[in-house]
């Protein structure tokens, strides 16, 4: 598809079903992960994206297969939306050898070379400079590619956020910065940690075109992403999108959520991306109730297969512990 064609969003029955299915895939996958966590099949940190699915779902279709993605430790949704096989992602959640990172990374470090998925970065803000570098390489090598970099609003407090925005704007690099503003950096509310809570205005101060968008509406998300990617591909330099969203679940499985009330969460859940898009699409006659049921069944089957795949997976032999520390495997 040409960039111009891709820039426009044509919402028809086919892609309405695709978007709804992707959001449901991510939601149900993570619900299964939470369940598997209580069974101790998945260990370590588990950061769920529940509530924020519209963003990864809406942004990925704006990208080409040879574009790059840099994500955070809350990246299951990005990985699935980018096209990583669910089996490999689930096996990675288990730490199995068949996982997308050979089981070494786990939930926070999903990597996938075939889709140019560069993690899975678990230091807040740490992925932004890498995205700048990937885009710098593309520019210097003459590749017409975009690097999409996802991060939360907490990253705006890190120096790397400011350094990276400045570098990308200064060097006119093809980076799409995507801030997923879910209002809490772990337990610290945005208003308690930033003097300027309109994150996209920070980007504007580095002369990046920037927008703030309702991140709970997958149609708006995708339209903005296509607009931004088209501008980047037209060699206009980096672009910054702030999506306003909300995390329905705890920060991680260790979070007692003392910092917010249940009422607030309920309020956001009522305008959640899946119910909202589903109800709208049904009302608009794009899809039918039976479609939703069919999607749920299909997704349920896919998840069951992924769990079976992960269960049947193997553990990397201990003798391979030091493999790939550096080339050749020796320390």
């Amino acid at each position: 598809m040409t960039p111009a064609k891709k820039a426009k969003l044509h919402l028809n029955r086919g892609n309405a079903l695709d978007r709804l299915k992707m959001m449901i895939r991510i939601r149900r996958f993570e619900e299964k992960c939470a369940e598997l966590y209580t069974q101790e099949k998945i260990r370590g940190f588990l950061h769920l994206y529940v509530g924020e699915e519209a963003i990864a779902t809406g942004v990925m279709p704006a990208l080409n297969t040879d574009d790059a993605v840099v994500a955070t430790y809350r990246e299951h949704g990005h990985a699935l939306a980018r096209g990583l096989p669910m089996n490999a992602v689930m096996a990675e959640m288990y730490g199995k050898h068949e996982g997308c990172s050979r089981g070494r990374g786990g939930s926070m470090h999903l990597f996938h070379e075939p889709t140019r998925f560069y993690g899975g970065n678990a230091i807040v803000g740490g992925g932004l400079p890498i995205a700048v570098g990937l885009a710098l390489a593309d520019k210097m090598l003459g590749h017409q590619r975009v690097t999409a970099c996802f991060f939360g609003e907490g990253a705006a407090a890190e120096g790397e956020f400011h350094e990276s925005l400045n570098l990308a704007a200064l060097w006119k690099l093809p980076v799409l910065f995507i801030c997923e503003n879910n209002l809490y950096a772990m337990g610290t509310a945005l208003a308690r940690s930033e003097s300027e809570t309109d994150i996209h205005t920070k980007a504007a101060s580095y002369k990046l075109p920037s927008e703030s968008i309702d991140g709970m509406n997958v149609v708006n998300v995708e339209a903005a992403a296509r607009r931004a990617v088209a501008a980047i591909r037209a060699d206009q330099g980096p672009y910054f999108l702030e999506y306003r969203t909300y995390r329905f679940r705890a920060h991680s499985m260790f979070d007692a959520q003392l910092y917010r009330g249940a009422d607030e969460t309920k309020e956001w859940e009522a305008k959640g991306p899946i119910v909202r898009f589903r109800d709208w699409a049904v009302t608009a006659g794009l899809i039918h109730a039976a479609d939703v049921e069919a999607i749920e069944q299909e997704v349920s089957g896919e998840i069951a297969k992924a769990v079976a795949f992960a269960e049947a997976g193997t553990w990397e032999p201990v003798r391979e512990l030091t493999r790939d520390v550096i080339a050749g495997g020796k320390l």
């Binding site: 560069y118 400079p129 890498i130 700048v132 390489a137 090598l141 350094e163 400045n166 570098l167």
Partner: peptide, 20 residues
């Protein structure tokens, strides 16, 4: 580069990943 050690070192990592 600007005085952004973390920024340009990370950009170096990204550029290396990107084929430079």
């Amino acid at each position: 580069t600007p005085l952004s050690e973390s920024g340009f070192t990370g950009a170096g990592i990204g550029a290396a990943l990107g084929g430079l």
